[in-house]
Every structure is written in C-alpha cells, then in structure tokens.
C-alpha cells in the first residue's frame, strides 16, 4: 500500500525529472560522472542515498524491486530500502534476481546473469577513481577531459611494488569503451567481468558526492592492468559449503569459538536457488541443520 503523504517513490516529480536527465546524460556518455543536485533522503549518507535517488527516478508502478547489500537481501540496510520503496511507491518486491525489474545493490553484482529488461542501480560512496592520488577536483576533471589516466596505473604500480601483485580487490578501476576511467563502486574485482557486455542498464548513484554515471547495455568495460600483471577476477579457492557452487563469490564465515570456517555464496538468492534445484555443498550435505 502506498503511503499517500508522499509522492510516488518519495521524490517530487521535478526532482525525479532532474535525476532522469542526469541518468540519460550518463547513458549517453558511458562512464562520465554527471553532477546532480542530490536531495536529502530520510536515511543517512552511507546508506545508499545516491542509489535510492536513482532507483526512485527509475521506478514505475509495474516494477518489481530487489535490494541487495553485499549479496544478501536480508541485511538491515537492504530490508529498510526495500520497505522504503514498498511504502512510498507501492511496488512489488522480490529477493529473486530473475524476477526483479530493478535491482539496487551495494557491493555486489548478482551471480544470476542479468537480462535486457532489468536495471541495476549501484550505491557509490566515492565516484572519483583518481581521488586516491589526486585530491583536487579541478585536476581530476581535467584528467578525465584530456584522458590523462597515467595516475591510475601509478596506483596499480604501487600495489605491485608493495604487495608483489595488484592487491586492489574492491572498487577495481575500469576503462569504459576505451574512454572514461570509472570506479565500479566497491564491488569485489571478481564481479568486474560482469560489468562488461551486460544486457541490463547499469546506473551508479553517489549521494554525498552528487554524481551519477552509467553503463548502457552491452558496454565494453575493461579492468586496468599491466601486460606482465594481467587482471584476475579472483575469489577464495573454495566451493560454496552450502550449494557447492565453484564459480560464485564466497564469504568466509566463522562458525564457532574454535575458529571453524565455512565458505558460502555471498549472493544468498543464488545460493538458495541452487539448493532448491538440488545442488548440495560440503556442509549442507552432511549436516543441513548445522549449516542453517
């Protein structure tokens, strides 16, 4: 039921139009950070106010919304954003990737391949990939304008010099269609390959920093690397202990005081779907009640 004291999806129509213009511009110039006038939202920054505003501008009454936080649908953050839109927009919600039309996410791309009729909205804390080495906004703008991206490789160089390999494992920088260098938000680099050639529209919203950027469907996205230190979409060298998946991103979970560990899919919907389909992991097979 829609709460009638709010406009559909909380934001007023004029604000949504302004955000949609920024989104369209972002789609027209893939990877380019479009400034927008971020609004106060009834939740703190860091809770995805940028993503929430983008989602609000995209939603129509027929949509089915999924919200994930680090792969899970049931964290406080994900639950409250889902409730927020159920209340202010009255849209249906789901935990299933293949049923959703709009997915708002923090820190993950779903394992289930996305489709052309879906929109994936990322919550972005720091949109500027060059910020780490060049704090001056005037200078980073110029670098994007003139495609001066040597600094990005300096960051990777420093990684290798210090750790023997590219240690950046989240928010791994990418080049979009050979033009803009982009921060994919703090997704694990395991997810980077899914950014490229994706059939869904991918939108990125940074609330505090007031930036929106986008990847239209089928955009080429390349992770930066060196010839002799090529990009690797790494993950823990285990299978999921619940569903047995060997190719999904895993969280490490400590299960008791003795430090016993298990590895489980970070994408809870994907994991549950596999178990429903009869797949079994090491712990699920032996003692399902313990794993639960």
């Amino acid at each position: 039921m829609t709460d009638q004291s709010y406009n559909f999806a909380y934001l007023d129509e004029q604000t949504k139009r302004m955000i949609r213009r920024a989104i369209l511009k972002g789609i027209a110039v893939p990877g380019y950070q479009v400034p927008f006038a971020s609004r106060e939202m009834p939740m703190p920054y860091g809770w995805g106010t940028g993503g929430v505003q983008v989602t609000a501008a995209c939603l129509v009454p027929e949509d089915r919304l999924k919200v994930i936080d680090q792969g899970a649908d049931d964290t406080t953050n994900a639950v409250s954003i889902r409730k927020f839109f159920a209340r202010t927009a009255g849209v249906a919600t789901t935990e299933r990737t293949d049923e959703a039309t709009v997915i708002q996410t923090r820190h993950r791309i779903p394992e289930t391949p996305l489709t052309p009729d879906q929109i994936l909205v990322y919550q972005v804390p720091i949109p500027e990939p060059l910020r780490f080495l060049e704090p001056r906004e005037s200078e980073t703008r110029k670098m994007h304008e003139l495609e001066e991206y040597g600094l990005m490789h300096v960051k990777l160089y420093e990684d290798i010099a210090r750790h023997g390999q590219i240690a950046t494992s989240y928010a791994y920088p990418v080049r979009v269609e050979g033009r803009y260098v982009m921060d994919p938000s703090p997704i694990p680099k395991f997810d980077n390959p899914k950014l490229s050639g994706c059939p869904a529209i991918q939108l990125f919203g940074a609330g505090r920093e007031q930036r929106i950027y986008a990847l239209p469907p089928w955009t080429e996205v390349v992770s930066l690397d060196f010839d002799d230190h090529p990009f690797e979409a790494s993950k823990a060298a285990h299978d999921c202990d619940l569903c047995g998946a060997g190719h999904s991103y895993l969280d490490e979970v400590i299960t008791d005081d003795q430090g016993t560990r298990m590895f489980v899919c970070s994408d809870t919907d994907f994991c549950a779907g596999r178990r429903e389909a009869g797949h079994q992991g090491r712990l699920w097979a032996s003692q399902p009640e313990a794993a639960e």
């Binding site: 080495l133 001066e148 040597g150 600094l151 490789h153 300096v154 160089y157 420093e158 290798i160 010099a161 210090r162 690397d225 060196f226 010839d227 002799d228 230190h229």
Partner: peptide
C-alpha cells in the same frame, strides 16, 4: 613530487602517462 607515492612510482608516472603498461620494464 607525489609524496604519498614511492620513488619508483614517482619516476614511473610519466612512463605510464604515455602508455607504459609493462610493470617490469617501468621498474
């Protein structure tokens, strides 16, 4: 200088800026 970047990174920056993509050679 980039004070937060190693000496090697400082020297290598211009090489990377003009397209250097081989870590071993840059180093």
């Amino acid at each position: 200088l980039r004070m937060g970047v190693s000496a090697g990174g400082n020297v290598g920056e211009r090489l990377m800026a003009i397209g250097g993509r081989h870590y071993g050679q840059i180093r």
